[in-house]
Every structure is written in C-alpha cells, then in structure tokens.
Write a protein that binds this DNA or RNA. Structure first.
Length: 514
RNA sequence: GGCCUUAUCUACUAACAGGUUAGGUAAUCGCCCUCUCAAGGCGAAAAUACGGGUUCGAGUCCCGUUGAGGCUACCA
C-alpha cells in the first residue's frame, strides 16, 4: 500500500543508543515506527547512535538487534543489514559531522566555545546559590570564553594550539519557535528559554542533536517518531533544519507518551521490573560489568506476538472493542492521530491476559513442544501424543507454558500424599470402603473411555443409592491428590485403566486405617 | 526554580467536528454451570481532578488552580 498523498516514500528510523538493553518503552517506539512504515509501504532503518563513547556498553547493539528480531520488528536498512544510506552506526560516520558544524560557524549559526567544564560548573553553582538558573545563551554568552568574545586572532591561535573546544548553536534572541507535532499539535517556545546547545564535542564527536539532524537529512527521513523526552529539544532541531537550509525537507515529528511505572508515578525503570515482578526488557540481560541479571519477556515465557499486541495498545488503540490483533492487523489499523497524549502505566495483569489469549490460539503440538523441556527438567518423560493431549486439556488454565507443570504434574507423577484440606472436608468414615467397592466396576470396563467410565460410575451410584459427588470427589483425590483438575472421566481415560486403578488401589491402601 | 507536555472507573482506554442511562477490556465481587479447580455465560460495583467561563446544552472549547510526567550535561 502506498500513500498517494505523500509525494515522498515514507522513511522512518529507530535510533537507539547502545548503552544497555532496550527498554520496553524503546521497543514500543520501534514498533510504532515499524507499523507506520509498513502501513505506508515505506522503509524503516536502524541507526545506532553511539556518539557518547563513555556510555558504550558491549553487547548492547547485538541485544537490540536480537530483541527486535524476536518480536518480528524487521528493518529494511541499517546496522547489520546495510543499505545505500550507510554507514548506519554514528561512530562509523564520525568524519562526516565536523564539516556540518563548521558550516554553521561560517554562516553565523554557531560558534567555538573554550570554557572548561570547571568554569561552567562554578557558574552553575553560583547561579544556584542565588536561586537562579545559569544558561549558556544570548544573555550570558558575551561574558564567556568563545569565538564571539575573543578576537579572530585569539580564536585562530587557540584552535591552532590544539586547545579543547566545543561548537555551540547560537540561538537568536526573542524568537518564537513553533514546532508541529503530529500527536500534540502546535507547540510554541521562545528562544530565550533555550540554551546554546553543544553541537560538537571536544572529543571530536557530534552530540545527539547535530548527528541526529545531519543523519535524518542525509538518510531522507520523512517522519521522526520518538519518545516524549525529546519534545523539549525539538525546537533546537527545527532551528537546525532552518540553519542548514533544509526546512523544506524537514521530517514531521511525533512525540510518543512515556511508559510509566505500574504503581505510583514516574517513568518505568529497570528496578521497577525486578521489584514488581515483571520484565522491562524484551530479552534477558546480564550486565557485563556487575553481572546483574535482568529478566526478559522471552525468558519469562511470553509469546512475541502477545508482547507486540500488548505494547501496541499501551498508548494507542484503533477505536473499536477489538483487542487481540496480529501484526498485520496492527499495521492495517495503526494511525498516529489515535496515539494518546498522556503517559500509560504498565499493567502486569493485562500483559498476562494477552499471553493467555495467545496461548489459547497456539497449536497444541506447539505448546507440547515448548512444554517437553519443562517436563525433562522435572525428570519426567512421556510420549508426545500424551503431552499434546494434556496441553489441549489444560492450556486454558494457565498464562504461560511453564505454568503448565504446576497444573498438570499429576498427569505424569502419581500423588505421593493427599491435600490435607481436601481430606478433612471430603473424606468420610465410609469413603475408603466406597472407593474400594468402585474398583471392580472400573476394572470391568473394556474400552476405558470417558464415556464408559461415566456410565460405569453412574451405575455404581445408582446401586449404592448415592449421588455422583460422594464417589467422584474421593476418586479425584486418589488420582490427583487434591480437589482440582479437569473432568475426572476425561482425566482417567487419558491416564489409562492401569494407571488409574493403580492410584485408586494405592489410595485405598493409604486410607484404610483412617 | 524555569520551560514544555499532560489529566475519563484500580489499570489500559472509547465517546468521529459539543447533545450517550459516559461504552469496552483487565482486575475485583456475586450468580449460573458442576464430582473439584479452572475456563465459559450472566450480572454488580467502579470515572470525566478542582474552580470559573462560552453555550439552550461541556468529558469534549477557553482561562485559572492542583496533580502527574519530561527536559533543564561536552548523555542520548
């Protein structure tokens, strides 16, 4: 599908920093970009923004790629894929940025600054003491050490001597900057409240702001869909497009609401996940420095489609009552206009419910395939046919495949004891005798099907003048060990005549002296 | 502190451009089903932050207050 109203092909990017594992907020940003690109038949690219060498974390880039691949969020271009607008890693593009910074200096939109970190720190502290805000801007820049206050000769000399410098953007004073956001509408900010942001650092690398604008321009990005934390710097970005003379091809902006912690308020963080017992990362992550392990959705047993579905609806919805949507449906229905403006709290219960829905839609054989290793962990082996049957019968009771063991262990292992509460409530004086009496009735069944068991027990009840409960509940305790589980006839048929009777006889033996 | 954003049940949200008994889902509770436990079916409780305006009429538009979040680095 192509959008005939858009002259240009839609091109979006996901541009994370490799400073650690990708947070689910970041995953959602990637997802929205992906849905938008696919819907418009456009391209989505992965750009790694690693301009801060001090925050680089080994393995983070590979983690991001693997995580998005697991979720089915695929890129058309980018790191690990290639493409005609590469390279896509900003550290590999390092040499490209300086000329753009210099261009702004020459055109008067930027200047060299030689202030040291200590000097600026002391200015900030002094301002703080007076309960004021220090800002490097039109009011203060003429009191600081930069190419606007120094003579041309001094500046040239400093540069030639290799003195450390940065390049700062020169905001024009008293100027209203208007940005248009696809989600929030027009936002107006006065340049007087903005500071002269560093564009080019003393280590020879650009800051986010410069690299981002240069790359988005060079890579012909048409829509920037990113988190709300970028909204305050959007005016700078708009001014940069203007300063470079690229305003006519400037991308459209959409700033996404943030994902909040489930209890209280504040941005969702790694610690919240571990505290509240849910993952904030798509994949498990081991911190290379501390060795600390953070849980992931994949390892916790979530289906990728369930995570995608849940995340898509956290901050967006298509308007109807439909909640279970495949990636294709999401692509079809997605629209930026319907994204909420306010932050969304993560809800663990709803996340589990989504996974349950996807579990119910999953083929029994596939569930069994995933359950087999769990069984092996518990030292149990069973035929594939039997495991598939167990999964078919029991999947509706769990949210995750691994929870199946807690609900089905008695299918594989006979009970070693009987639940105390069940015994106390359900086991009467004559129960053992009654159970013993039912054995011949069950033994007589030739074809041990649920139906046959039902008929046999019905006859038994009639002969003894009792209802179904007084015998079926004790039999259940004998077979399951507790008053829980699926329909008993079905369960016994599945276990087979031999195993069912063995458990019943064992139970009679264990309870005869009660 | 300054700047920006934001505000519907406990949570996620619906109510296209002002007119609804403010709807759905999850969670909670009750009933039905039933040999138990789930699932399922039916039902209940549950919200327009507050105060002004505009209007015949405001969840919806405007202003203010309050709450919440973000940003305020040579981090992204």
């Amino acid at each position: 599908m192509s959008d005939n109203n858009t002259a240009q092909t839609v091109r979006v990017r996901f541009a994370p920093s490799p400073t650690g594992p990708l947070h689910i907020g970041g995953v959602r940003t990637a997802l929205y970009n992906y849905l938008f690109a696919r819907q418009h038949g456009g391209h989505m690219l992965l750009r790694i923004e690693d301009t801060d060498q001090t925050r680089f974390v080994p393995g983070a880039e590979q983690y991001i790629i693997e995580a998005l691949d697991w979720l089915g969020i695929r890129f058309d271009e980018g790191v690990g894929i290639g493409g005609e607008y590469g390279p896509y890693r900003q550290s590999d593009r390092k040499a490209m940025y300086k000329p753009y910074a210099l261009q702004l200096v020459e055109s008067g939109w930027a200047y060299y600054a030689f202030d040291t970190a200590e000097e600026l720190d002391s200015r900030r502290k002094a301002a703080e003491a007076e309960k004021k805000n220090f800002q490097y801007d039109a009011r203060t820049r003429m009191q600081l050490r930069n190419s606007l206050t120094l003579s041309e000769e001094e500046t040239a000399q400093l540069l030639a001597s290799g003195a450390p410098y940065v390049i700062r953007f020169k905001f024009p004073p008293h100027t209203d900057i208007q940005i248009h956001d696809l989600i929030r509408g027009d936002v107006k900010v006065s340049s007087d409240t903005l500071d002269d942001k560093v564009l080019f650092k003393s280590d020879g690398m650009p800051t986010y702001h410069l690299a981002n604008i240069v790359d988005d321009h060079l890579m012909r990005i048409t829509h920037v869909i990113r988190g709300e934390e970028w909204l305050p710097s959007a005016p700078l970005h708009v001014m940069l497009y203007r300063a470079f003379g690229w305003e006519d091809t400037m991308p459209q902006f959409a700033h996404l609401p943030l994902l909040l912690k489930p209890d209280g308020n504040g941005k969702l963080s790694k610690r919240d996940g571990d505290r509240l017992g849910f993952p904030v990362f798509p994949l498990q992550w081991t911190d290379p420095k501390s060795g600390e392990v953070s849980s992931g959705y994949r390892e916790s047993g979530y289906f990728p489609a369930a995570v995608v579905n849940m995340l898509a609806l956290l901050g967006w919805n298509p308007g109807g009552d439909e909640e279970i949507m495949s990636m294709d449906t999401l692509i079809e229905k997605f629209s930026i206009q319907r994204i909420s403006k306010s932050g969304a709290k993560f809800d663990l219960e709803k996340a589990k419910w989504f996974n349950h829905q996807y579990l119910m839609m999953t083929d029994d054989a596939e569930i069994a395939r995933r359950f087999m290793p769990v069984l092996a962990q518990h030292g149990v082996s069973a035929s594939e046919e039997f495991v598939v049957a167990v999964c078919r019968l029991m999947k509706e009771r769990v949210n995750f495949v691994k929870e199946l063991w807690d609900q089905t262990s008695y299918f594989f292992v006979a009970p070693e004891s009987y639940a105390e509460a069940a015994m106390k409530k359900r086991w009467k004086e004559d129960t053992t005798a009654l159970v013993r009496d039912s054995i011949p009735q069950l033994e007589a069944i030739q074809d041990f099907t649920g139906e046959a068991i039902h008929d046999a027990m019905q006859q038994f009840c009639e002969a003894h003048g009792i209802g179904f409960g007084p015998i079926m509940i004790p039999l259940r305790i004998a077979i399951v060990g507790d008053t829980k589980g699926p329909d008993l006839q079905t369960l016994m048929a599945l276990l087979g005549k031999e195993e069912s009777l063995r458990r019943i006889r064992t139970c009679v033996e264990r309870t005869k002296d009660l």
